[in-house]
């Protein structure tokens, strides 16, 4: 396995603000990698450091083994799909896609042949003569993708690529991006604040918070065994249980997470955990319940059925003790 991108102790300061705090990260060639985190967590800055739009204040960046922190973006074999697509408004679609070929002085007819092939790849053949202003949001995104891929970069960076699209289009594009990545074998690194998007698309995820990486792992690892309270809360919408509550349950105090789908709620007062339903929302195949147990709220997601407890009803809460995942003491 070749390392495509390697960050060692990368730090980026903006005045007094520490946007990236000694980031260590290795991204493997050919993987679909997600950088996940809330806004201001440093994920976009990290992407911009890899692209070359930001220079690290300190640390080492290597791309395919070559030191890159002093290489300007136009000399990096890395391309970017921007959040606002950044299509050149004064050029039509084909000239947008052929822009990098024009700079490399590729001969005109060959340039257009390659650009047309890239457009075909994103299912936009025949749109070459249009202006970016005449395209829909989804089409613009495809043009941006074709433009970034026309040179077959070693690494493709995507900054919130689906953020501006509506739900249906977003799901369709998720599928297409995944199959495109598999087909081309190019390393994709994408930034998102949507944990569902990261889970469904990425081979591996890095969770960012406050300029640091909280955890790196496959979606399953991140979801099932979150390393910290932040990851448990941000990624899985898990129940994060405080030490004393866990102590009363198990006799061993300490932070723990509990996935909502591992929790069973039954009417009546049979088990040892008794609480009251404070909210119930029907999600179709499943129903989400929030139960208040002596001041501690626990979320449960259960298959929808005919006899779901009502709001205000007394209920018993139970779960398999092995579903309780111990968390590190750090936030």
């Amino acid at each position: 396995m070749t390392t495509a991108v390697s960050l060692k102790a990368i730090t980026r300061r903006f005045g007094d603000v520490l946007a990236l705090d000694a980031i260590d990260l290795d991204i493997v060639e050919g993987e679909f990698f997600a950088m996940l985190g809330p806004s201001g967590s440093g994920k976009t800055t990290c992407l911009r450091v890899i692209a070359g739009f930001e220079q690290p204040s300190s640390g080492e960046l290597a791309i395919f083994g070559e030191r890159a922190e002093t290489v300007p973006p136009y000399k990096r074999n890395v391309n970017t799909v921007f959040q606002d697509y950044a299509l050149f408004p004064h050029l039509n679609v084909i000239d947008n896609v052929a822009y990098s070929l024009m700079l490399r002085k590729v001969e005109r007819s060959e340039r257009y042949r390659q650009a047309e092939a890239a457009l075909e790849m994103v299912k936009l053949s025949g749109y070459g003569a249009r202006r970016p202003g005449q395209l829909s949001g989804g089409q613009r995104q495809r043009v941006a993708l074709a433009r970034a891929l026309v040179n077959r970069p070693k690494v493709l960076l995507l900054d919130e690529p689906l953020g501006a699209l509506d739900l249906k289009l977003r799901e369709q594009m998720q599928e297409e991006l995944k199959s495109l990545q598999k087909r081309l074998g190019i390393t994709f690194i994408f930034v998102t604040h949507d944990q569902g998007e990261a889970m469904s698309m990425a081979d591996r995820i890095a969770v960012f918070n406050l300029g640091r990486i909280m955890q790196v792992g496959t979606p399953e690892e991140i979801y099932l065994t979150p390393a910290s309270r932040f990851v448990a809360d941000f990624v899985g919408s898990s129940n994060v249980l405080p030490p004393d509550f866990v102590g009363t349950l198990t006799g061993k105090p300490g932070w723990a997470s509990l996935r909502p789908e591992a929790v069973t709620v039954t009417a009546g007062a049979g088990a040892n955990l008794i609480g009251m339903v404070v909210s119930r929302s029907y999600l179709g195949a499943t129903t989400r319940l929030t139960v208040d147990i002596a001041g501690q709220r626990i979320h449960a997601v259960m298959p929808s059925g005919p006899a779901m407890p009502e709001e205000g009803e007394q209920v018993a809460v139970s779960f398999d003790p092995s579903a309780l995942h111990r968390l590190a003491d750090t936030p």
Binding site: A68, P72, K75, A118
Partner: peptide, 26 residues
């Protein structure tokens, strides 16, 4: 599509490029 060369960075020289690099760094 153009064939990928294995080098990650592109070698480019000339006074303007050097000046451009300087502006990027500073």
């Amino acid at each position: 599509m153009s064939t990928t060369d294995d080098a990650f960075t592109e070698q480019r020289h000339g006074a303007l490029t050097a000046l451009s690099d300087l502006f990027w760094r500073r």
